[in-house]
């Protein structure tokens, strides 16, 4: 792409519009899809979409390859669960507390890993994730350990839950769009591409990196808190590294560093894996192979391939200068 369509503002706008179309399709789905079972699958796939968007903020936009998104979903799910179990605090307080709590922990983790890059960052966040999971699994008296914790539900209506998730996906998506369009988003991209370069030009790397950690972890925490009340059970399994692997797979297949990619990737991967479950449980083999193939040969992911093709198809003259 060598014309004005390669400008970040333009790429982002096209990306956002495509993502809105996906959300619109999701919003319209209950017209056709009425079975509670299928709606449930779509709800879980939106949970993964939120995680994917959260992780993509950190890894795809700010360039920080954390291996802890699932751990933050777990933490976000446990906060309302524990508040209810021990102190009968209502979800109206519990869920926001989960979001704020994960944001604070994410911010702290961001502070602590500031100087670490690449493999060092991956190992540190992996350790954090595993420690969090081991602690929750072993603190039986407080968390009921591996048995898991019952969480009250927000509402009985499955369609109601469905639209709650659609609304939250829309809000997160719009939030990401506005942040990425602002100076903050541009600074993240700069830090991703060259941290030293960003610093030497006056970008406060410390501030924007920790902000990325806090926001990303808050999105993951929000996803976890909602999922916990939907499934009415939270367990340490939410924080397994395997879950993080699935989230990474979704983002890489969909298209890292975009808005549409993680959303589409999560929906496609989760729905296809439900479908493949009937074909002999090969879904994880297929997706992990796809991740490797995409990382190796199609680094832009599905959305990247689509976006590039779209631009090629248009005549050059139509682009003009902006």
């Amino acid at each position: 792409m060598s014309d004005a369509r390669n400008l970040w503002s333009h790429r982002l706008a096209v990306d956002f519009r495509a993502a809105l179309v996906v959300v619109a399709v999701l919003a319209a789905a209950p017209i056709v899809v009425t079975s509670p079972y299928t709606l449930g699958i779509l709800i879980v796939s939106m949970y993964f979409a939120l995680l994917a968007m959260g992780w993509n903020l950190l890894a795809g936009f700010a360039g920080q390859f954390s291996l802890a998104p699932a751990a933050f979903a777990m933490l976000g799910a446990y906060v309302p669960g524990l508040l209810d179990y021990h102190w009968h605090v209502s979800l109206a307080v519990g869920i926001p507390a989960g979001i704020v709590g994960t944001a604070i922990v994410g911010w702290l983790l961001g502070r602590v890993v500031l100087r670490l890059r690449g493999p060092y960052l991956a190992l540190t966040t992996l350790s954090f994730a595993e420690i969090a999971r081991v602690v929750i699994s072993n603190s039986y008296d407080f968390t009921r350990g591996a048995q898991g914790l019952n969480v009250p539900t927000l509402m009985q209506s499955r369609v109601g839950y469905y639209y709650l998730f659609v609304a939250v996906v829309l809000v997160v998506l719009a939030g990401l769009f506005f942040v990425m369009r602002s100076a903050i988003g541009r600074f993240w991209l700069a830090i991703r591409d060259d941290e030293t370069g960003a610093e030497s030009r006056g970008i406060d790397v410390v501030r924007y990196k920790t902000l990325a950690f806090a926001l990303s972890c808050a999105i993951c925490g929000l996803a976890g808190a909602l999922y916990g009340t939907f499934s009415q059970l939270v367990s340490p399994e939410l924080g397994l590294l395997l879950q993080t692997g699935i989230v990474i797979a979704m983002v890489v297949i969909g298209g890292i560093g975009t808005l549409t990619g993680p959303l589409v990737g999560a929906l496609l991967v989760y729905l296809a894996s439900e479908w493949m479950r009937g074909l002999g449980n090969v879904q994880m083999i297929v997706f992990s192979a796809l991740v490797i193939i995409f990382a190796r040969f199609f680094r832009e992911g599905l959305w990247g391939l689509v976006a590039r093709r779209r631009v090629r198809a248009l005549p050059r003259a139509a682009a003009g200068a902006r």
Partner: peptide, 25 residues
């Protein structure tokens, strides 16, 4: 080169999942 770290994390993580699930199946 600039994507090296990302590529390494994604590919080896993906490979790990692939081998586990392949043997599982």
């Amino acid at each position: 080169s600039i994507m090296k770290d990302e590529y390494a994390v994604v590919v080896t993580f993906g490979l790990s999942l692939f081998l586990i699930n392949l043997v599982d199946k």
